[in-house]
Amino acid sequence: MNSLKEKYGEWGIILGATEGVGKAIAEKIAKGGMNVILVGRREEKLKELGAEIEKTYQVKSKVIRADFSLSNCTDAIFEATKDLDMGFMSYVACLHSFGKLQDTDWEKHEQMINVNIITFLKCFYHYMGIFAKQDRGLILNISSLTGVTSSPYNAQYGAGKAYIKKLTEAVGYEAEKTNVDVMVATLGSTITPSWLQNQPGGEAGEAAIKAAMTTEDTIDEIFDNIGKVHSLVVGERNRNSVKHWQTDMTADEAAAYMGRFYE
């Protein structure tokens, strides 16, 4: 892990770093010697995390407040990082809204498009350009099993995660003969504060928590595979599920399987 700074560069940016997977990625690259740029909406919480990381890992931190649902939010991000030795980018931010497609307000749809597609693509394009020019860097984007099956009653979110997955896989191949590592990690249920808030109570909730992965195990598996694969479904249980959906089910059956969770 101490070779991250030497291999990729001095600074890493985590887009969606406040808690959960984003926070764990920030801590992981700091442990590898990289300075961290923490981006999200909750500025005070990010400053607390930055101070904690600086104290624990003896690296520098920067905080950028940004609302990823605004299409121009990347202006301030790119300006704040233009003079830094950038070597890592991870897009973790996501936005979802439960309900039928036509029952969701159009404003919410536009926000989801910006968070899950437009802002993601702008950041991927920008930092991939930097890394390609200097011929070093690491891109780590986060997708979800909802992008494998589709996600009825959460349809745009699942489609956005499929976009992130397929775009990153393709760019990973494009960068294969370079010193830029590109990877998308597809996650299943992962115990984070926001995930816990969405779980049902009682036995169903207990079963979901028991089956979920911790953020620590998730991040360890991801970083163990960087440079080895462009696309990773994280967790043996999740890999078995994907294999089952793709070999034993039609697309309609897989969508129905996922949809029944929200009915």
Rank of each mutant, 00 (worst) to 15 (best):
Lys23His: 14
Lys23Trp: 07
Ile25Lys: 08
Ile25Ser: 05
Ile25His: 11
Ala26His: 04
Ala26Thr: 03
Ala26Met: 04
Glu27Gly: 01
Glu27His: 04
Lys28Asn: 11
Ile29Asn: 13
Ala30Asp: 08
Lys31Gly: 10
Lys31Trp: 02
Gly32Pro: 03
Gly33Ile: 04
Gly33Phe: 11
Gly33Leu: 08
Gly33Glu: 09
Gly33Tyr: 12
Met34Val: 04
Met34Cys: 03
Val39Ala: 14
Arg41Leu: 02
Arg42Trp: 06
Arg42Leu: 03
Arg42Gly: 00
Arg42Val: 00
Glu43Cys: 00
Glu43Gln: 14
Leu46Ser: 10
Lys47Phe: 07
Leu49Tyr: 07
Gly50Val: 08
Gly50Tyr: 13
Ala51Pro: 00
Ala51Ile: 00
Glu52Met: 08
Ile53Thr: 08
Ile53Arg: 05
Thr56Ile: 01
Tyr57Asp: 04
Tyr57Ser: 02
Tyr57Ala: 01
Gln58Arg: 12
Gln58Asn: 15
Val59Arg: 06
Lys60Met: 07
Lys62His: 03
Lys62Ser: 07
Val63Asn: 10
Ile64Val: 15
Ile64Ala: 09
Ile64Trp: 12
Ala66Arg: 12
Ala66Lys: 12
Phe68Trp: 12
Ser69Gln: 04
Ser69Val: 01
Leu70Arg: 09
Ser71Leu: 11
Ser71Phe: 14
Ser71Ile: 14
Asn72Thr: 11
Cys73His: 02
Cys73Arg: 02
Cys73Ala: 13
Thr74Asp: 12
Asp75Ala: 08
Ile77Trp: 06
Ile77Gly: 03
Thr81Asn: 07
Thr81Phe: 09
Lys82Tyr: 04
Asp83Gly: 04
Asp83Trp: 03
Leu84Ile: 09
Leu84Phe: 13
Asp85Val: 07
Met86Asn: 14
Gly87Ile: 07
Gly87Met: 12
Gly87Cys: 09
Phe88Asn: 05
Phe88Lys: 05
Phe88Pro: 04
Ser90Leu: 07
Tyr91Glu: 06
Tyr91Cys: 07
Tyr91Ile: 04
Val92Pro: 02
Val92Glu: 05
Val92Gly: 03
Val92Asp: 07
Val92Ser: 02
Val92Thr: 05
Ala93Met: 09
Ala93Thr: 10
Ala93Phe: 11
Ala93Glu: 12
Leu95Thr: 07
Leu95Val: 00
His96Ile: 01
Ser97Gln: 15
Ser97Trp: 10
Ser97Met: 12
Gly99Ala: 04
